[in-house]
Every structure is written in structure tokens, then in C-alpha cells.
Amino acid sequence: MSSSSAGVEPGGKGPEYAVPALDKALDILEVLAGRLEGMSQVEIAAAVERSPSQIFRVLTTLERRGYLFRERQTGLYSLSLRLFDLAHRQEPLRALTAAALAPMRRLSDETGQSCNLSVLDVDRVRVVAQAESPADFGFRVRVGATFSVEETATGAVLRAFAGGGGAGGAAGAAGGDEGVLESIRERGFLERADAVRGSITDVVFPVLGASGGAAAALTVPYVATSYSAVPAERVREAASRAAAEISAGLGL
């Protein structure tokens, strides 16, 4: 292989293969993913530090393949749901959501509260499914939203039960942090005020996979108001049953 087709990564770790067109496409997708409104070709080019002519063919290809949607009147580009669709084709995620949706719906109907299902996504907690409250008032979390692993109750449960929920289940934990995770494992769940909205109490149970480790976490963001006809104790019981039912659906 000629030296012109491959470089070397900093530090000499190995070859770095440059694919300019792919880099441009990924840069464009990442920029648009962080925007609520559409962007023009000129705006996208500025954001990815390239000229409009350099990204024209990439934009055209992404639109043709269904990853981008272009508004005909304004010419603004937005992300389509194509990436969302691809993510949900992944077999583990399909199996998880398939096992979870019916129990989650029953949980919401029984408690009058919304609930959501989250997984670890590298170093973040990502919401992959949700059942909205049937009541007139409730709290919902957007599917696809990500949150801190360290600062959320959901992240704490996922960490506590990672790898089977034993002493080695909290990889990377140390000192007092390991003590907190051990306490969660002993109780089997976590209930505490939401890190962002103190008026909400997060009730979180692990969803265990066939290996015995946490495949996901089931969270009820409990809203204690006059609209809450079901007390917190019954919400805990219902959430525990739903998590066990989802775990059974995964083959535990």
C-alpha cells in the first residue's frame, strides 16, 4: 500500500484512513442533529468549515438516500427519521422495546404516571422507549434524549447492576461511590429526587437480561400532585412488577 493512501495516527498507534466524503457526510449529520430548525447549504458549509460547493454532492446524496429532508420553499435541510429507524432495527434494541412496550403501557395505565426505558449508550443514558401518562397531567421524556450517567438515578441503577449486579457490577466505581451502588443493589431499586427537577421523584428498577446484568432501566418520574391518585408505594410495586415482566420477556 502506498504511503499516499494511509497515514499514521498521532502517537504511532496505527494507520489512519481518510475518507473525505464520509467525513463530510458525518459532519453534516452531526451538525443537523444539534439543531431544532433547518439549515441552508451555506449555513451547513460554514458549520462544517467547508465551502458550499464542497458539500453539495454530499447533501444531494444524503437527501436522495433519505437521511435529509429539504424544504422545497425555503431550501432548508433537516434530519429525517432515517437514522432513528436504523437505530431501532438493531436486534438487541428491537427485542428490548418489543418486550417492554406492553408492560410499560400497563404500568402507566395502573399508576397514572408516565414511564420510560433507558440503556447505557457509551458514557450516557439514552431513553429508548416511553409510555405517556393517561392522566391530564404528567411528565414525559423524549425518546432519544440522553442524560448523565453519574448525575441521574437511572444512570446509578444501570451502573449498580452492570455485569450481573454482583460486587463487580459497578465497573469504575470507587470509594463512597461503590458504597452507594452497593446500597442500590441491596434494595433492588433506587428512589430519589430528580437531579434536574426536584419536584419529581425518580423510581428506577433494573431490567435484567439473560446474563443477569442490567439490559436497561425502567424509570417512573413520579409527580406527586393533586393529580396523583396512586400513592408512591403502589407506584413502586407496579414498577417492580413491570421491570420483572420485561426481564422475563428478555429470557431471564
Rank of each mutant, 00 (worst) to 15 (best):
R236I: 02
I200P: 02
G179L: 13
G198S: 11
S183W: 11
R159D: 03
A229G: 15
V230H: 03
G168W: 12
A239E: 00
V196I: 09
A173P: 05
A129V: 00
V235R: 01
S133K: 08
A131M: 00
A232Q: 10
V180D: 07
G165W: 03
V196S: 03
L208A: 02
S226T: 13
F189T: 04
A174Y: 10
S183A: 15
A229V: 14
G176W: 13
A153G: 11
A129E: 00
G212N: 10
G144M: 03
V203E: 02
D136P: 09
V230Q: 07
F189R: 02
G155W: 05
G198N: 03
A193H: 10
A214H: 02
V143S: 01
E186W: 08
A167C: 11
A156N: 06
E237Y: 11
S199F: 14
G213A: 06
T219S: 06
S226G: 12
A174S: 15
G169K: 02
F161I: 04
E132Q: 14
A210M: 11
A193R: 12
D202F: 02
V230W: 02
A156H: 03
A239S: 09
G209I: 00
V141A: 13
A214Y: 03
Y227L: 12
V141G: 08
A170D: 04
A195L: 01
R185Y: 01
G165D: 02
P231S: 08
F137R: 15
G213N: 03
I200F: 03
F139R: 12
A162V: 09
Y227V: 13
V157P: 06
A131R: 02
G209Y: 00
V128D: 03
V143R: 07
A195P: 00
A193N: 08
T201D: 08
T154H: 05
T154Y: 06
V230D: 00
T225C: 08
A153I: 00
V196Q: 07
V196Y: 05
V157G: 01
Y227I: 14
V220K: 00
Y227C: 11
R187H: 08
V141I: 15
D177G: 12
A135K: 14
G144F: 02
F189I: 05
G166K: 11
R142Q: 15
G169F: 04
S133V: 11
R236F: 04
G198K: 07
D194I: 04
V157H: 03
V141F: 14
F161S: 01
A135D: 15
S226Q: 13
G164E: 01
S211A: 15
G175Y: 11
V128T: 06
F161G: 01
G172I: 11
F137D: 15
R159K: 14
D177C: 09
A135T: 14
T201M: 07
F205I: 08
G163M: 07
L218W: 05
T152V: 06
G209T: 05
D136W: 14
R140D: 11
V157E: 01
T219I: 07
G164P: 04
E150N: 12
G155N: 03
V128C: 05
A145E: 04
V223I: 14
R234Q: 13
P221A: 13
A214C: 12
R187V: 03
L218K: 02
G175L: 12
A210Y: 09
L218H: 05
V203L: 09
S199Q: 14
Y222S: 04
V203C: 06
A210T: 13
P134F: 13
A195V: 06
E182M: 09
A215M: 06
E182H: 09
G163E: 07
